[in-house]
Design a protein around this nucleic acid. Structure first.
Lengths: 332, 332
DNA sequence: TTGTAAGCGTTATCAT
DNA sequence: ATGATAACGCTTACAA
């Protein structure tokens, strides 16, 4: 391994000068700069990032915590972050929290221990208070898909209420009046807000929320299948179904087939998230786009701006969902 | 930040003793050990991993390079690696290579510069020679989904030939004799081997490979749709189709619908990889399981064993694909 | 078993 | 503008 010493020796200058040109400090003469650059080139010198971190107490490393690494959602997020980061010579280290509180907390400690300059967190098990407290520590962090009033600056979230509204509004616009809803766990903020949006749309059309048309799932495929079964077996008929995410919608499509229902002719189905696989389904799923990649990039920009002091970056915290019309919904 | 100094002071022992108990060295008396542990506890001491890396020239960090972070495949891989690694206090840093040669090379340099103790590479743009040369460097690496004779120890790969064979063999067993094939880019090793497996199965049944029943796609959905269209428009009839991956199979299913074909009644379709979304499709896709998560974990074990000298780990390099029967195939 | 002291490869603070 | 020199927080001979 070639070190800064050897470069300085070959260039005939001191350590400090080499360090200065490495870090683009001003007040270095063209002459020494050239000598150093030449020596670096000749030795194929690569600075030791660990040593730089230790000396500068800046690791150029961002910690990322997500619930799960697999699944259709997080890949887009990571991919957005990785490209932004590597373009500026920084990198990320990634951990999974598995939506379990103690596991998430442990993972956050793990990342902080690794001297991450900042964190990007997609967590749902940890409490608001924990995060508010964490914000008093010395590691800045961005929160994705979460809204905490005390931490607005750090939060990058979707207008879930609007999303839920948009989904149901679309069905209403198509003439549906009996609209079932399969929710995520209402204990989760996003699931809850999407449901509120659904209710808002109903209200706008002077429709009352009917509990017989409601099923609380767990965001997984299977619960969509189970949900639609329960709904179909209930007394209350419906011509459309809005689901709080695409997985459950896909499960619902399967469940509908078990009842020999034709989609969308017999029942329109809406998803939420616009996961890549929605295009693979038959019929292709109408859904609500969740711009997760943009959000992840924005969180990265926020860190670039606030931690690494890059300017020229405008930050937005609230993201707008959009309606994606495909084949699974039709007018009545 | 509390350092080892403060711990040693509070415990009333030297730096080295603290370091020794941190690293579980033998030859430390119960007494000092307890004092140190107590002091650590009291100060909530967390060792500075950067400093440890620098002093020990071991970063406890594995670099991971994949083609893309999104898509149905890599999440499982990363998830397998992350859990194995964090369980032993190590971590990973992740980069994407985008199947572009210079980009992959740059990413590898990037990871090596970060002092990764080892790498896990899922690369397809970089040449065998490059990797053989890389193996002479000081950073050990594991290769996933690739087989290089000179580097057999480092390679963790699927028996793609067997997979291709299994897929077509299943179709043959079901009575099909006119079997079309949609391949990946044959310039890619895995695509090529899967095709060979297909041909082997045909041969076993005394069938000749028919070029009119062959289409070379690019592993993406769209090419499956285009492929089956071309095939259906050709003169040669077929009752079954084997695809070199699930994306193309899903595209083919869509393409078949454009021709009002019923699957599997009019045409059986096989996929390859067993991506999670194959269960969401209708009908659910029969496919070949690619145990990517196991393979990633095995690569991690290999590193644990060879780089970190953990014993009790048996390493296997070749993985066996298995047939997953679902709804998209039926006997004739 | 324990402590001393010399690194690890940088950055950063001073002088000059 | 440049160069000594002291950190950065830890590991690891080597000595005791």
């Amino acid at each position: 391994m070639t070190t800064i010493y050897q470069v300085s020796e070959l260039a005939g200058v001191s350590l400090s000068s080499v360090s200065r040109v490495m870090n683009n400090h001003q007040h270095v003469s063209e002459n020494t700069k050239n000598k150093v650059l030449a020596a670096m080139e000749q030795l194929d010198y690569r600075p030791n990032e660990t040593a730089r971190s230790l000396a500068s107490s800046c690791s150029n490393c961002i910690g990322i915590l997500v619930s799960e690494l697999h699944g259709p959602f997080y890949g887009d997020m990571l991919s957005g972050i990785e490209s932004e980061l590597r373009a500026v010579g920084k990198h990320s280290i990634i951990a999974a929290g598995h939506s379990d509180e103690s596991s998430e907390i442990e993972a956050i400690r793990f990342l902080i221990d690794r001297n991450c300059d900042a964190l990007i967190l997609l967590v749902d098990a940890v409490s608001d208070d924990y995060l508010i407290n964490l914000s008093k520590g010395s590691t800045p962090f961005a929160l994705i898909n979460r809204q905490i009033p005390e931490l607005t600056e750090n939060c990058f979230y979707l207008d879930n209420k609007l999303g839920g509204y948009l989904a149901t509004k679309h069905l209403l616009d198509q003439g549906h009046r009996e609209i079932a809803y399969i929710s995520g766990p209402i204990s989760k903020q996003d699931a809850n807000e999407r449901l509120i949006g659904h209710k808002n749309a109903l209200t706008e059309f002077n429709l009352e929320f009917n509990n017989d048309l409601f099923f609380e799932g767990d965001f997984l495929t299977k619960s969509g299948q189970i949900g639609i079964k329960k709904l179909l077996e209930g007394k209350q008929k419906f011509t459309a179904l809005s689901c709080a995410n695409d997985e459950m919608a896909s499960g619902a499509m399967r469940g509908a087939r078990d009842f020999n229902l034709d989609i969308p002719a017999d029942c329109s189905i809406m998803g939420f998230d616009n996961a890549f696989f929605t295009e693979y389904l038959y019929p292709q799923l109408s859904t609500i786009d969740y711009p997760i990649k943009n959000m992840a990039q924005m969180a990265t920009h926020w860190i670039l701006k606030n931690v690494y002091k890059k300017s020229n970056l405008t930050i937005e915290n609230l993201f707008t969902p959009t309606l994606i019309l495909r084949e699974s919904t039709t007018s009545i």
